[in-house]
Amino acid sequence: NNDALSPAIRRLLAEWNLDASAIKGTGVGGRLTREDVEKHLAKA
């Protein structure tokens, strides 16, 4: 759900053309954090 994404995370996902549903969020309530996105990018 994009409503739970911060503007910074939305921008990062758009910049790298990533799908938020493909990344497991570790923040409060399962929210994506910058670290989650960076770890996903490191694996790719």
Rank of each mutant, 00 (worst) to 15 (best):
N1K: 07
N1L: 13
N1D: 14
N1W: 12
N2Y: 08
N2V: 14
N2L: 12
N2G: 13
D3M: 10
D3Q: 12
A4F: 14
A4L: 13
A4Q: 12
A4R: 12
A4C: 07
A4T: 11
L5H: 07
L5C: 09
L5M: 10
L5E: 06
L5Y: 07
L5D: 06
L5G: 04
S6P: 12
S6K: 04
S6V: 05
S6D: 15
S6H: 09
P7F: 07
P7N: 10
A8Q: 10
A8T: 09
A8V: 08
A8G: 08
A8R: 05
A8D: 15
A8I: 09
A8S: 09
A8N: 06
I9M: 06
I9D: 03
I9L: 12
I9P: 00
I9Q: 02
I9S: 00
I9G: 00
R10V: 14
R10K: 14
R10P: 01
R10E: 14
R10D: 12
R10Y: 07
R10A: 12
R11W: 15
R11L: 15
R11S: 11
R11I: 12
R11Q: 15
R11D: 15
L12Y: 04
L12S: 00
L12G: 00
L12K: 03
L12N: 00
L12V: 04
L12M: 08
L13A: 00
L13I: 06
L13G: 00
L13E: 01
L13Y: 01
L13H: 01
L13W: 02
A14M: 11
A14G: 05
A14T: 11
A14C: 07
A14H: 09
A14P: 00
A14L: 13
A14R: 11
E15N: 06
E15H: 11
E15D: 10
E15T: 08
E15F: 15
E15V: 09
E15Y: 15
N17D: 09
N17M: 07
N17S: 10
N17Q: 09
N17P: 03
N17T: 04
L18P: 01
L18Y: 03
L18I: 12
L18V: 09
L18W: 03
D19C: 05
D19N: 08
D19P: 07
D19I: 08
D19W: 05
D19G: 04
D19H: 09
D19K: 07
A20Y: 06
A20G: 07
A20D: 04
A20L: 08
A20H: 06
A20T: 05
A20P: 15
A20F: 06
A20K: 05
S21Y: 07
S21V: 08
S21G: 10
S21D: 11
S21F: 08
A22D: 14
A22I: 09
A22M: 14
A22H: 09
A22Q: 14
A22W: 11
A22N: 11
A22K: 12
A22S: 12
I23V: 07
I23H: 00
I23K: 00
I23Q: 02
I23M: 06
I23E: 00
K24W: 07
K24Q: 13
G25A: 11
G25I: 04
G25M: 03
G25N: 03
G25V: 04
T26P: 01
T26H: 04
T26K: 02
T26Y: 02
T26G: 03
T26C: 00
G27W: 02
G27M: 02
G27E: 02
G27R: 01
V28G: 06
V28A: 13
V28D: 12
V28Q: 11
G29M: 06
G29R: 05
G29Y: 04
G29W: 05
G29A: 09
G29E: 06
G29Q: 07
G30W: 00
G30A: 03
G30P: 02
G30H: 04
G30N: 05
R31F: 05
R31M: 13
R31E: 10
R31H: 07
R31N: 08
R31D: 05
R31S: 12
R31Q: 13
R31A: 15
R31Y: 06
L32M: 05
L32C: 04
L32A: 02
L32T: 02
L32S: 00
L32H: 01
L32Y: 02
T33N: 03
T33D: 01
T33G: 02
T33R: 06
R34A: 12
R34Y: 15
R34C: 09
R34T: 11
R34W: 15
R34D: 09
R34L: 15
R34G: 05
E35T: 09
E35Y: 08
E35D: 11
E35W: 10
E35S: 09
E35H: 09
D36Y: 01
D36E: 01
D36I: 02
D36C: 01
D36N: 02
D36H: 00
D36L: 02
D36V: 01
D36A: 01
V37K: 00
V37Y: 02
V37M: 03
V37N: 01
V37H: 00
V37Q: 00
V37E: 00
E38W: 14
E38F: 15
E38M: 14
E38P: 00
E38N: 06
E38A: 07
K39T: 12
K39F: 09
K39L: 13
K39W: 09
K39P: 01
H40Y: 15
H40L: 10
H40C: 04
H40V: 09
H40T: 05
L41P: 01
L41I: 15
L41W: 08
L41S: 02
L41H: 08
L41T: 03
A42D: 07
A42R: 11
A42V: 08
A42N: 10
A42T: 08
A42M: 10
A42K: 11
A42E: 13
A42G: 09
K43G: 11
K43N: 13
K43D: 13
K43Y: 12
K43E: 14
A44S: 12
A44T: 13
A44M: 15
A44P: 08
A44Q: 14
A44E: 12
A44L: 15
A44R: 11
